[in-house]
Amino acid sequence: MEKLPPLNAVRAFEVAARTASFTLAATELGVSSAAVSQQIRNLENWFGKQLFVRSGNRIALTDAGHAIYPQASRALGDIAAIGRRMLEGGLRTRLVVSVPFSLAELWLAPRLAVLLEAFPQMAIDVRVEDDPVDIARQNIDLRISYGDYHYPGLKLVRLVHDEVLPVCAPDFWHRHGNGASGLEGVHDSMFIHTNWGPNYATHPSWADWFAASGQSRSPDPSQGRRVGLSSLAIASARLGLGIALGQRVMARADLEAGRLIALSPVSVRLGHPYCAFMLPAKAERADVAGLVELLGAIPGKVHSGFPGKSV
């Protein structure tokens, strides 16, 4: 057998690289920061390469560290998958899907309904949580994330690159549109603003939308309605609370049913696509592959994996 690197050190390296912190790695592993640091030194000595650049309390992967990390993460994930199969006797039927808060209800749930028509006996565990998550340790089959950069060691499938456009309830526009042909004359208090949170800087704002439509207006958020989720912005618009800059994939069902109307054909693309991440060993499972296909489907397209079904 070929000589293997120390596996405890590889595990410490994988967690430290993923969390970008010896302190966070120590918390996850249940050891001290000094123990993590020592394991990293052991691995560096074994490879004869420096894996991290250390600057005070901050760490960053070196070129050698970047070269090693994807394979180390993938190998540990495969080992974890083998252990689960042995413990469960190879009879696992539960699909564990991890998803951000904003996507769970309006985007994921309708597609899970289609999946369950094809796999009616399947048990599904939907976990709603922010990035990052430990896919291997938490036994997650599929993680859906905004952006393609969170999990470099895993299989990646880009699902959809969404866009936003102005939407509101028909009755709201009838009462507050003032006969306007566009949004130029709408008061600032009528706009719904989505606060994406401190971790995101690439989501378009109302100022971005007005710029895309050839106008310089920037509605004042302090005068309008503010919500903390894109799905809540759409729900608020549906209830007649204002005009939301709604994501198209989330608003599609409401637009088709007439519960919402689009006030302009102008849309603005999000900064990143939504992506699916999974351990390579799980990517070919029928339930995982079927859900990935549904999530990446063009609306209305009939899928080969699920005859007669459309999303």
Rank of each mutant, 00 (worst) to 15 (best):
R85A: 06
M250A: 07
L294A: 10
A283N: 03
D78V: 12
L183G: 01
M86H: 09
A257H: 06
S236F: 04
G258I: 02
A235N: 14
V99R: 03
V186H: 00
G182D: 15
L165D: 01
P166I: 09
T93D: 12
P204Q: 02
Y146M: 08
G90E: 12
E2F: 08
W46R: 11
K155W: 08
D130F: 11
L116P: 03
L239T: 07
S55G: 05
R85T: 13
V186T: 11
V10E: 01
F277H: 08
W173K: 03
R94F: 08
W173M: 14
S216R: 07
V96W: 07
P100Y: 04
L241N: 10
D208S: 06
S145R: 13
W46A: 05
L4G: 06
I243R: 06
R285A: 14
A113W: 02
T194Q: 07
A253H: 09
A169F: 00
S310L: 12
V10Q: 05
G77W: 01
R158Y: 04
A118I: 14
D188S: 10
R11K: 08
G258A: 03
Q50V: 08
L291F: 04
L112C: 12
K155H: 13
T194I: 09
Q215D: 03
A281C: 10
A25I: 04
S230R: 03
A212K: 11
I135R: 07
I261V: 15
M190R: 13
V36L: 06
Q138W: 09
